[in-house]
Write a protein that binds this DNA or RNA. Structure first.
Lengths: 244, 244
DNA sequence: GACGACCACTCGTCCGATCAAGTGAGTGTC
DNA sequence: GACACTCACTTGATCGGACGAGTGGTCGTC
C-alpha cells in the first residue's frame, strides 16, 4: 500500500516481535498476564489464528507460558543455552603449540581399564596415546592424555612425537572420514596417582578433578577418549544454566 | 468414537509423532522429501492447517527443513542440547522427605567466606542455613547445605527444623515473590573438612567434589546458595553435549 | 538450441468460524 | 458456612477456504 519495494515481515512475526519488545522493556512485566487473544486480535487487527500462531511461537521459545482457561503469562527473556566449560571439547581442539604445552608422550600404549571400557575394547589393547602437560605461569596445571584406536590414528601424525600445530579433532577430520558428533564427560574427584604427581609436580594426598571425555560419532561409536587431570587447588569449573 | 474414556492426544501431535517415528526408523530417510502437505492431509484425514502445524513444529525442532515451492525435507533426528546432571537445581528441588534424607541443621548461621561472596553480603553476616545429609544404601553419600538471606527466608519454614515435604524452590515460590531464573555452579575437587568428614563419615584425606551453586533471579541478583559436597569415591557427574 | 509462456505442484500466510474445555467469580439454595 | 449451579472469559483444536509466491517441468515459438 504505502510502498512498493518495502519488505514486510509476515504479520505473525511482527506480533512476535512487538510482544518480545514489550517484555524486554517492561511494558509487560514478568509474571503478569498478557492481553487476551481477543484483545490482541483487536489491537493488531488480525485474525485470531494469526495471534495464536505468534503466541505459540513465543511459548515455544520460552518467552511466555500459556495456561488453558487462564491466560498467557510473561515468563521473561528466555535465558538461552547453558554456558559451561567443555573440558573435553577443548582437549581435542587445542593445538599443541599454543601456550606452555609440552608433549610428554606419543605412541603405542596399553589401554587402562577405564579407557578400554570407554572405547569398547579389551583392557590392555594397544592404542595410540598422546599426552601433554600444560603449564600455567611456569608450573604444571593440567595433564591431558588422548587415546585413539589404532585404525583411527593410522595414517595420521597422532602417534608421532612431533608437535601437532592444530587440534587433534581438526587433524583427524582433515586426514580421515571421522566426524565427531557428541562428547560425553564423566567427572570425579580422586587423589592423584604417583604418575600424575610426577608430571604435575604435586604433593602426596593432593586431590584432583578427573574428567574422562569420550568422543562419539553419529552412530554413537567411540572415536577417542581424553583423560584430563586437574589439580584440585588450581581449578574450578563453571557452569551456568536456566532454572527451568 | 471407539472409546469414551480413552485419552487421545491432539491430532497435530499425533502427526508429529508419526513423522518422527518414520524418520527414526528410516521410513523417511535423511535428505529425502517428505510427502507433500496435500498427501499428508489425505493420509491423516485432517485439514491442511493441522498438517501444516505439525510440520512447523517438526521444522522448529530441527527434524525437517521446509523449502518454499519445493517441499519438506528430512534433516534427521535433532542432536539435542546438552544433557547434564544439574546438581545445583536438584538441591533446590528435592523434597526432604524423599529417600534417606536427614535434616542435620536449620536456623541462623554466619556466612562463610565463599557463601558470603556468592550472595554478595559481608562475611559472617547472619543467614538462614539448612543442611541435610542424603544416605545411599545406609551410608552418607551427599551433604547439601542451603543458604538464604534473611529477608528471603523470612515468612517461610526454611529456618525451622521440621521436614519440608516439597523442594526449597517450590516452597519459596509458593510463599514469596521469588522467581529463580538462572543457576550458576562452581565445581572443584578438594579434601573434606573436619566437619564434612564427621557428617559424611569419611576418612581423613578423602577427596570430595564440591559444588557451589548460586540461584539468581531475573535481575541476576543472588537468591540462595547451595553448597553440595560429594565424596569422590562415590560420585561421578555425567555430561553430554554435541561436538559441533 | 535459446527463450519465454504456461502450468502443475509445492509451501507461506491469513482469515473466520465452530466446538471443546479449563478457570474463577458470582449467585442462590440448603 | 458449604455446596452446586451458572456464566463470562479464557485458551485449545480443528476445519476449509482463500490468495500469494517459489520451483521445475512441458511445450511452442523463434
Amino acid at each position: 500500500m504505502m510502498s512498493n519495494l518495502e519488505f514486510a515481515p509476515p504479520k505473525y512475526a511482527q506480533i512476535v516481535q512487538a510482544i518480545q519488545t514489550r517484555i524486554e522493556d517492561g511494558t509487560y512485566p514478568v509474571g503478569t498476564m498478557l492481553p487476551s487473544e481477543a484483545r490482541l486480535v483487536r489491537e493488531f487487527g488480525s485474525g485470531r489464528s494469526t495471534v495464536v500462531r505468534a503466541l505459540q511461537i513465543l511459548s515455544m521459545q520460552g518467552w511466555i507460558e500459556r495456561e488453558h482457561g487462564r491466560g498467557s503469562f510473561v515468563k521473561g527473556v528466555p535465558a538461552h543455552g547453558a554456558e559451561r566449560s567443555h573440558a573435553g571439547a577443548s582437549a581435542f581442539d587445542a593445538p599443541e603449540n599454543a601456550g606452555d604445552t609440552t608433549v610428554t608422550a606419543a605412541g603405542r600404549a596399553a589401554a587402562p581399564a577405564v579407557v578400554a571400557e570407554a572405547l569398547n575394547v579389551p583392557e590392555n589393547s594397544p592404542l595410540i596415546r598422546r599426552q601433554r602437560v600444560i603449564l600455567d605461569e611456569g608450573s604444571p596445571s593440567e595433564l591431558v592424555t588422548l587415546w585413539f584406536p589404532l585404525d583411527i590414528a593410522s595414517g595420521t601424525d597422532l602417534g608421532d612425537t612431533g608437535v601437532i600445530a592444530i587440534g587433534a579433532r581438526e587433524h583427524l577430520q582433515a586426514l580421515k572420514q571421522v566426524r565427531p558428533a557428541r562428547i560425553t564427560e564423566r567427572l570425579s574427584a580422586r587423589l592423584a596417582t604417583v604418575e600424575e604427581r610426577r608430571l604435575l609436580a604435586t604433593e602426596e594426598g593432593a586431590p584432583v578433578l578427573a574428567i574422562l571425555a569420550t568422543v562419539l560419532n553419529a552412530e554413537n561409536a567411540p572415536i577417542a577418549v581424553a583423560d584430563i587431570v586437574l589439580p584440585g587447588d588450581l581449578h574450578e569449573l563453571e557452569d551456568s544454566y536456566p532454572a527451568t
